[in-house]
């Protein structure tokens, strides 16, 4: 398999996952804003921080109110992580690897992009945004299901799976990060608010229901972090995504370095002392975790996407 093709499949999956996660995140945010008293420290701006796009936002917008943030996160093509940009990039990656992806896969990705372009084509936020975003989430999931069910689980599929899982882990860590930094300010209503905020964190990751089934206590920060980082069964937990990546790496050639990087990540997550870190330490920890995701991505790039000249076989 050509490196370029593997790379495009990997990025197709990452971009689709990013579009899905961002759409879901925006939906949860809009709802939670309705529930919270003002001045609790949760702001639209956090969407920019979660998606790590400050550098694109700052020079282009003066204020970070709802309208600007939504415009930027959903419809702005100058933001490479906006939903429209992600779907366009996913489409371009499939378009150039059409012989590897099942025809229906291409058709669905193409239609999804055209749908998003219709809804987000102007900078005006479309009416019934909730429905539009739910539609995007659902269609992304449909594509994942379609690939799982119709594409041979060979090298190409494994690259898609790795891309999707790494993107998922990254988003989970970012949402946990923002949750942890938001909650630090102590106040009278802290307990009630804390409960509500961690609930939103869980819902941003479609994790609320599964958490409730698994953790039979009132929602607490450390329990939530424990669940989102270490639960072996929840598909968006970091432990689970790392396990998936490890499996996929296992069937690829020349996988030693990326495998080592995943193993290091897995050790770090399993050894983490959540109670001790909770508070200021968590933010730093999440930063380090994200740095390791980047490192893993780099290992994948150098193992498969840009082989060096001295590696002739």
């Amino acid at each position: 398999m050509l490196s370029r093709v593997a790379e495009r499949i990997y990025w197709m999956a990452r971009y689709l996952e990013r579009a899905e996660n961002t759409a879901r995140l925006v939906n949860v945010y809009r709802e939670s804003m309705l529930d919270l008293p003002s001045g609790v420290g949760i702001e639209w701006r956090q969407l920019i921080e979660i998606t790590g796009t400050e550098d694109y936002f700052e020079p282009r917008y003066r204020t970070s109110g709802e309208r600007n943030v939504l415009k930027f996160v959903l419809t702005d093509r100058a933001n490479p992580s906006s939903v429209i940009s992600c779907l366009e990039a996913a489409r371009e990656n499939v378009r150039t690897t059409r012989d590897l992806v099942p025809t229906e896969g291409w058709e669905h990705v193409n239609e999804l992009y055209l749908f998003a372009r219709k809804k987000f084509g102007s900078s005006k936020i479309p009416p019934r945004l909730h429905e539009v975003l739910s539609q995007i989430v659902m269609r992304c999931q449909q594509i994942i299901g379609l690939l799982a069910g119709t594409m041979s689980h060979g090298d190409a599929y494994q690259f898609a799976r790795i891309g999707r899982s790494l993107e998922r882990a990254d988003m989970t860590s970012r949402i946990v990060d923002v949750g942890s930094t938001t909650l630090i300010a102590p106040g009278e209503e802290l307990e009630r608010l804390e409960n509500r905020l961690w609930m939103n964190v869980l819902r941003s990751l479609s994790a609320y229901q599964m958490y409730r089934q698994h953790v039979r206590r009132r929602i607490r920060g450390p329990d939530t972090v424990e669940f989102l980082l270490r639960d072996q069964q929840f598909p968006r937990s970091i432990a689970h995504t790392m396990q998936t990546i490890r499996q996929s790496l296992g069937s690829l050639p020349r996988n030693e370095t990326p495998l080592r990087a995943v193993a290091r990540l897995q050790r770090r997550v399993s050894k983490m002392d959540i109670d001790a870190l909770f508070g200021n330490g968590l933010h730093l920890y999440m930063d380090e975790l994200q740095a390791e995701f980047t490192e893993l991505d780099q290992q994948i790039v150098s193992a498969w996407f840009s082989p060096r000249l001295d590696e002739a076989v």
Binding site: L2, P253, A303, W304, L309, E311, V313
Partner: peptide, 14 residues
Amino acid sequence: GKDDCVYMRTIHGL
């Protein structure tokens, strides 16, 4: 390459 041969980049290496 330095050996003046042509290589393609694949996931198995060059």
